[in-house]
Design a protein around this nucleic acid. Structure first.
Length: 271
DNA sequence: CTTATTCCCTGATTGC
DNA sequence: TGCAATCAGGGAATAA
């Protein structure tokens, strides 16, 4: 389930592997049409060939490929999407949904077991990513956190995962950041003091940078653009550790449902 | 405006 | 052991 560190890892892979390359043939495999959100799959396949990839950027969990004709290819991986940069003749990958051939006999293979990912080919990227809040890595200050949490009675974890408040955090890294600062994920966002928010902002940054240092977390499906797993799953403190002892105090990690999402935390360390 | 729930999708895991 | 129910979860849509 790619969150900010995973998407950023892929972005960096693509900077060296795809920037400067030009799209040739595009294939949307049968049954994968709904991944292409805009324009129609047929227009999508006609629109990309001949366009060079000028840059790859990121907003939250969205990847943006800036193209030579001024348009932008936007990709969201949802839970099981991956972008694999392979030689044309490489062994086939499971769950291939969209194949974007490049001019150097390589291809970007979009694989996605659950077919929930999305792509857009648009003139104006803000039409897709404009609704996002500030990026959790680039745009985070504690004053920002204050303005996001102000007046909100929703659990702090729900606010951290709200992409229109703060873009980039999902279940893994919101849980890890809250554990790091000892804050109960159920606490109403507005109940956090300024000092809590300062520490939380720092923890979010630290957790994201550490995960990026490990090239992301591979719990089930995540692979980088070279097809390799990340390593941060071996370093999480609470995520999916239900019943296992807290590394701080030994208390079993609890799992609850919060806003429809499973949530892991230490009932003793997080108040 | 807010927060909570459902749906999408398919393979892995859990429970009886 | 076998098979059905549940789980995983980002974000859009919908309900309240």
């Amino acid at each position: 389930m790619p969150e900010l560190p995973e998407v950023e890892t892929i972005r960096r892979d693509l900077l060296s592997r795809a920037v400067g390359r030009t799209f040739s043939h595009i294939r949307v495999l049968p049954g994968a049409e709904r991944i292409v959100q805009w324009p129609s799959p047929a227009e999508f396949c006609r629109g990309l060939p001949g366009r060079r990839i000028e840059d790859v950027s990121r907003r939250g969990k969205y990847l943006l490929l800036q193209l030579s004709d001024g348009r932008c290819l936007i990709i969201h991986l949802r839970m099981t999407g991956a972008i694999l940069h392979r030689d044309k003749g490489a062994p086939e990958d499971s769950y291939l949904r969209i194949c974007l051939s490049l001019d150097d006999s390589s291809e970007l293979r979009y694989t996605d077991l659950r077919k929930m990912g999305s792509m857009w080919l648009v003139e104006e990227p803000e039409s897709i990513v404009g609704k996002l809040g500030p990026d959790a890595l680039e745009g985070l200050t504690w004053q920002t956190l204050r303005s996001l949490t102000d007046g909100r009675s929703a659990p702090i974890k729900a606010v951290l995962m709200d992409q229109q408040a703060l873009a980039g955090l999902g279940n893994i890294y919101s849980e890890e950041a809250l554990f790091r600062v000892g804050i109960d994920p159920r606490r109403p966002a507005k109940s956090l003091a300024g000092d809590d928010l300062k520490r939380l902002g720092k923890a979010i940054r630290e957790v994201l940078l550490e995960a990026m240092g490990h090239r992301g977390s591979s719990f089930r499906d995540y692979l980088d653009a070279e097809g390799r797993e990340g390593q941060h799953q071996w370093h999480v403190k609470v995520y999916r550790r239900t019943g296992e002892p807290c590394y701080n105090c030994g208390t079993p990690i609890e799992r609850i449902k919060l806003s429809g999402r499973s949530t892991h935390f230490c009932p003793r360390c997080q108040r």
